[in-house]
Amino acid sequence: MKAKNQSAIEFLLLGLSEDLGLQPILFGLFLSIYLVTVLGNLLIILAISSDSHLHTPMYFFISNLSFTDVCFSTSTVPKMLVNIQQQSRTISYTACLTQVYFVLVFAGLENFLLSAMAYDRYIAICNPLRYTFIMNPCLCVLATLFSLFISSVDALLHCLMLLRLSFCEDLEIPHFFCELDQVIKLSCSNTLLNNILVYTVTSVLGGVPLLGIIFSYIKIASSVLRMPSTEGKYKAFSTCGSHLSVVSLFYGTAFGVYISTAVTDSSRKTAVASVMYTVVPSMMNPFIYSLRNRDMKEALKKLTSQIPFLL
């Protein structure tokens, strides 16, 4: 089978359904989800930046997580909306690799930020007297920049490995965005090195932060259970509630997609399942942090009172 010139390659994003009658419904649904995601996360960022009481390490990471959620959603949903609106499924080779890059960057960054937030809660509960010293602004900024650097290097490495692949016929991607694994499957050249890289990096960069989160919460639970006051226990656990909800949503949906991929041969069902980890967590995070956090509620009330058109 003859390989195509890379500059002439165009992939086809099959989306979630080929039913033309469903396209307007999907367009309206995902446009609504995207707008809620962007507006909700921007409100969180504005509320935190405008309230000096929230200029703490925990809210610094929350604001960065909200920014990451906006970017993560923007890297996938707008292209899907454009394709539905124009009734076109094509995406160029360059655009596809660009999408792969940014999806990997922001997915990786969210993974690291959740781990950093777990460490922040661990220090706040298990070592409160040294919290200000350990979780200083310099450390928070360095942790965020380091997370971004590692995620960017990881994404760049995967994209460089994609550049060595040749693509022939049948360039249909059964997803609404260019997912790395699906692009690799379309190659007509040897993809052994690509697959080894994917499994190795996913295990390390995905497993290490997750283990860090689990370790942090084991230590937190152990410390809280030793507290003599019931009120103290409740207060300690309540500060972790929002983060635990976000962690459960992010990793739960990701593992759900992995399991669905393993048990079903239907690529279309896998594409539908992938919506759960690419779109839903980014939309739900602002609600989790605003509804379960009293300080955030107060900050949002102050912000909306200062902006007449939000009343």
Results as ranks from 00 to 15, higher is better:
261 T>E: 11
168 C>W: 01
83 N>Y: 01
20 L>D: 15
190 N>L: 11
53 H>Y: 07
189 S>E: 08
295 D>Q: 12
305 S>G: 06
168 C>I: 03
288 I>Y: 09
113 L>Y: 09
285 N>F: 15
19 D>R: 09
159 C>E: 10
292 R>D: 03
78 P>T: 02
15 G>M: 02
93 Y>C: 05
267 S>V: 08
295 D>W: 02
210 L>T: 14
82 V>L: 11
127 N>Y: 11
101 Y>T: 09
151 S>W: 04
240 C>P: 06
261 T>A: 15
173 I>A: 05
151 S>V: 05
294 R>P: 00
165 L>K: 04
243 H>T: 14
65 L>I: 12
90 T>Y: 14
33 I>S: 07
169 E>V: 02
176 F>T: 01
56 T>R: 14
247 V>D: 09
247 V>S: 11
295 D>I: 00
248 S>C: 14
104 L>T: 14
20 L>K: 13
91 I>W: 01
233 K>T: 05
11 F>N: 03
201 V>Y: 05
13 L>M: 12
194 N>F: 10
224 V>M: 03
304 T>N: 12
140 C>H: 03
52 S>G: 03
208 V>M: 11
76 T>R: 00
146 F>V: 15
152 S>R: 02
268 R>F: 11
245 S>Y: 14
97 L>K: 04
107 A>Q: 08
226 R>V: 07
5 N>C: 06
101 Y>F: 12
88 S>W: 07
8 A>L: 13
181 D>N: 14
242 S>P: 01
216 S>W: 00
167 F>W: 05
255 F>D: 07
72 F>G: 00
88 S>A: 12
231 E>M: 12
34 Y>Q: 06
302 K>C: 10
294 R>C: 07
289 Y>A: 04
87 Q>M: 15
186 L>H: 04
124 A>Q: 12
269 K>H: 14
228 P>F: 05
70 V>F: 00
173 I>H: 00
208 V>Y: 09
162 L>K: 02
160 L>G: 07
91 I>K: 03
183 V>A: 03
159 C>S: 10
104 L>P: 01
104 L>E: 15
56 T>P: 05
181 D>T: 15
169 E>Q: 13
88 S>G: 09
25 I>L: 14
255 F>A: 13
281 P>Y: 01
229 S>V: 02
177 F>W: 08
146 F>D: 11
30 F>M: 06
205 L>D: 02
107 A>H: 04
223 S>L: 04
12 L>M: 14
274 S>C: 09
182 Q>N: 14
147 S>F: 03
131 Y>D: 08
180 L>V: 08
81 L>S: 03
274 S>V: 00
45 I>D: 02
236 A>V: 05
256 G>Y: 04
235 K>F: 09
120 D>A: 11
179 E>T: 05
257 V>K: 00
118 A>T: 07
205 L>H: 03
29 L>N: 03
12 L>T: 13
32 S>R: 01
168 C>A: 13
206 G>M: 05
178 C>M: 06
53 H>V: 01
305 S>Y: 10
310 L>D: 09
198 V>L: 10
89 R>F: 08
279 V>Y: 01
241 G>M: 09
133 F>P: 02
59 Y>Q: 07
71 C>G: 05
164 R>S: 13
233 K>D: 05
9 I>N: 03
240 C>M: 08
34 Y>P: 02
281 P>M: 01
271 A>M: 01
